[in-house]
Design a protein around this nucleic acid. Structure first.
Lengths: 356, 356
DNA sequence: CCCAAAAATGCAAACGTTTGCATAAAAAGA
DNA sequence: TCTTTTTATGCAAACGTTTGCATTTTTGGG
């Protein structure tokens, strides 16, 4: 039935005895075109069932009106929320979002970078793999003046635009919170140090210990991909021999939840015997009993900032030298049951005031 | 620095004294090109930092190597999981996925359909809005022989390719389960009937009641968007006056969780006083205490099927008349604490055998 | 009513590929 | 060596827009 049905602006032009350029401009609301013509053209476009061809437009104009987004995985709470916000915001401004996930595989990340470049995205937002330490596969974008924004998992260098959480302060806040609740032997389950944000959280953790004159013990920190399986393995080691720690700072909530369930099984009481704090404020943390203290990273806010940064970078003329500002999203500790001070433990001595 | 740096196949051709067509074919591994030439070309491409321009290729070949995916929202467990699977599978076959969310707004859905058509996606997978009853905005795709697959939330008509859960059986299974556990007054909190899948679940619910000779009461069914807020409102009404129901079948887990928490507040014991079953098997259902009985819809499997359907449709020649098979993904009731038979309640009489 | 300025439209080249067809080169058959 | 077949390569026209510049039409001032 419908074979060569695809109508083009040429068809519209012929139908109305206008030139293609006029039709093109009319459809794009170019100021030089009279209102009367615009209306005529749009009406005919509707009548013919004309559908613009984005590839043709993109090829000619060198703008795809598409923005790339790369995240480790979209099925996790934090990146999913961010993606949603970014997409909605960009949609408002007429941009499509090409969402891709690297599955935390560097190889896939590199392949996707190439694909997105081939698609000639107008900009790219990236939260990298856990294992990305070399960022050169993103150079094409910078070299060709394509706006590039890193968020959450970002490179350590300072020659890129970055939107990130305040991971140092997060690590600090969690650890001080545990100390204030009476913990003196705090395990930290961290992600791999190839990812900067964990480096910073560890730094915060260490700083808190130091402030409160608690010795840092290497054996009390685990570096691992923060999966359920790995959390279980860590538990096995942590609870293999006494003394058990009295506090655990887990770098994500999946880990915290797993530990909590493990404790239930081996009859370690939370928070009485052991206090647990997670990270990211996953919805599950609020629902589990005892509910888990966690750190809100304001993913919606982060998404807003990323979207805003993308739009700003796109709009400014290509010649403008890029500003490489770092944007730091604040964090907030959400206190819940898993780290509550239990009745019998006396309030810990505040040896030192927080110094902001 | 890098101004007109964008290398094209023309540059490669000139560099090697070959024609552009040869270069193009060489890069695409066309059988007519000698191995020697292919190697030369690819080497030069690498040397020049050549990056294919997908828009140019797409314009000419009328294939974008991009597939569209439209879901209500990607931040919910079920669609997020499906999206992940689809993306990974398609990626293996060299396709990009353009993920969009309609935010359950019909208006946005229509706009997105147009956008995706403009992008000339090679195929489209859709899970519609709760309120989509007119599907004509997807006609463009069918009319132009662009493979179109609906999943989860699908049209009722039979002239489209569909992958869906077994919602009738799901509704039936949940309700019979509650009855078997002793419930005789079962509230059903359903989504709006504009969405077929809820129609089917309600049908299953009714069928189960009928089988067990329990009268259907209109006032015991709520039709609403399944948000937390709406769940709270429903709770207010349900528990405004006695007798309270002894079972609740919630059409998603967010609703089930909200009810559970509401019960805790008003001292209704679950499962002793009231049994609750949710739907979709959200991770939270397993974690909350009491854990919530729910229905696994096998999102990963559904994703696989959708991806497979897309690929199959793409590969078959355009002329082939489309087969409009319906694919039904089985469901599985996952029994948990929230619907456990309590000690004192006698096992209910099985008045009738399950029949299939 | 004329002319300059402003507004509206048209021309044609480009954007970077792919691809049907023609041709050239190499291999094979006699 | 000369055809014939097979294998490689080249030519040139698309694909559907956008856009700088030229041209035409309209407007308005005098």
């Amino acid at each position: 039935m419908s074979k060569r049905t695809e109508k083009t602006i040429v068809d519209i032009a012929e139908e109305l005895n206008l030139s293609v350029s006029t039709v093109s401009r009319a459809l794009n609301d170019h100021p030089n075109i009279s209102t009367r013509t615009k209306e005529k053209v749009k009406k005919m476009a509707r009548k013919l069932g004309y559908r613009p061809n984005a590839m043709a437009a993109g090829l000619r104009s060198n703008r795809s009106r598409t923005i790339g987004l790369m995240v480790p995985r979209i099925s996790m709470f934090f990146p999913a929320t961010i993606s949603t916000v970014i997409q909605n915001k960009l949609q408002e401004h007429g941009y499509n979002l090409l969402i891709c996930q690297s599955n935390d595989s560097l190889e896939q990340e590199i392949a996707l970078a190439n694909t997105l470049y081939s698609a000639r995205v107008d900009a790219l937002a990236v939260s990298t793999t856990l294992y990305t330490t070399d960022f050169s596969h993103f150079d094409i974008f910078r070299d060709n003046n394509i706006p590039l924004v890193f968020f959450d998992r970002v490179p350590g260098t300072h020659d890129v635009k970055v939107v990130k959480g305040d991971d140092y302060r997060g690590g600090l806040a969690v650890t001080e919170h545990l100390i204030e609740k009476g913990c003196t032997d705090i395990v930290h389950i961290s992600g791999p140090l190839s990812c900067n944000l964990y480096v910073e959280r560890v730094a915060g953790y260490k700083k808190a210990l130091q402030r409160h004159k608690i010795p840092f013990k290497k054996s009390r920190v685990f570096y691992q991909e923060l999966t359920k399986e790995n959390a279980l393995q860590a538990c096995a080691r942590i609870f293999a021999q006494k003394p058990y720690p009295d506090g655990i700072f887990a770098a994500n909530d999946t880990t915290a939840i797993t530990i909590l369930e493990y404790c239930r099984k081996i009859n370690v009481r939370v928070p009485e015997d052991l206090k647990i704090v997670g990270y990211s404020n996953d919805p599950r943390a609020e629902i589990i009993r005892p509910s888990i203290t966690s750190v809100d990273q304001f993913p919606a806010l982060m998404g807003e900032k990323v979207a805003a940064a993308l739009l700003e970078l796109i709009q400014q003329p290509k010649s403008t030298p890029q500003q490489f500002s770092q944007e730091i999203i604040p964090i907030q500790l959400i206190e819940r049951e898993s780290s509550a001070a239990d009745a019998k433990s006396r309030t810990p001595a505040k040896k030192k005031q927080k110094q902001g």
